[in-house]
Amino acid sequence: MAIVGIPRSLLFYNYFPLWQTFFEWLGEDILVSEKTNKKTLDKGIEVTVDDICVPIKIFHGHIAELKDKVDYLFIPRIYSIHEDMYVCPKFQALPEMIKSSFKKLPKIISPTVDLFSQKNKELRNVVDVGKNFTDDLNIIGKAYHKAREAYSAYTSILKLGVLPSDIFDKKYSVVGIEDEKPTILLLGHPYILYDSFLNMDIINKLRDSGYSVITPDNFKFNEMAEIVNKNGISMLWTFGVKILGSMLKSIKMKNVAGIIYLSSFSCGLDSIISEIFEKRIKHQSKIPYTIITLDEHTGEAGVSTRVEAFLDMVEGREINEDYISTHGDSIFSHEINI
């Protein structure tokens, strides 16, 4: 029985149930790296070039933690996860980056996931991954079937208003996304939203202040894609569609009191998406929003201050809604960098 190492980073938060079930049904052990901590980040910074984005640095840190403990590393090379859409180019060379950064590595399982135009290649990938462990196609097929079941169960739970980080921490309670309670929509890439080290535990901070939190993963992808199209935005990045789509949907929801966009420094996608986000939200709604840019600095006070100030503003807006200011209409926060 071999041990397969899965880093708790990047697309882990989207696809872990799929991967886990698949490898478990193949009869392999899984080792998931620990939650991101200072050590992970330091190890990652050691081996990466300085201007790459933090999530990739953290990914390297997770690999550094896993590489001596496992027989296989699972690092898919991802080109596209939706038809006619791309993901960030950094996903397309992940295995190669890792191979270049570390000397001694266990065997790397790196199927090329490309759903851009070649939908039917999916099964071949599955077989290729499975062949590392068994030659029995039946077992691989069954494992994949179970994995798909687990994955669709996982996504349908998310649609109820549960966050992936809650599921992995095993403490979730179902809160409908259109609940009465004032809600903050947290935007960003999944690997920033659910990594409590990188985002300074912003989800719990918001919850402690009495807000419920929803993210793009709580919305149905088709609906998001539709509304993005309807608004005349041509967006070919899956994450872009999710971020802009959930923003456009939520500005029509009554319970959404504010929107926080978490972006990471030197993220190429965010520089485009956040610009469109800002231009659209300004014209289409009066919901307060803020953009917080995160990087490898670990000073928590900066983020806390910004979040608190933002929440104060949201509350103040609630109380003073009937007062009309003598100059300007509603209060908007400006983009904040830390």
Partner: peptide, 17 residues
């Protein structure tokens, strides 16, 4: 150029090349 995504990836891979 600063923050060019494809070239940052290339830069990360370069040492091995």
């Amino acid at each position: 150029p600063f923050s060019c995504m494809p070239e940052i990836i290339a830069r990360q891979i370069l040492p091995k090349v």
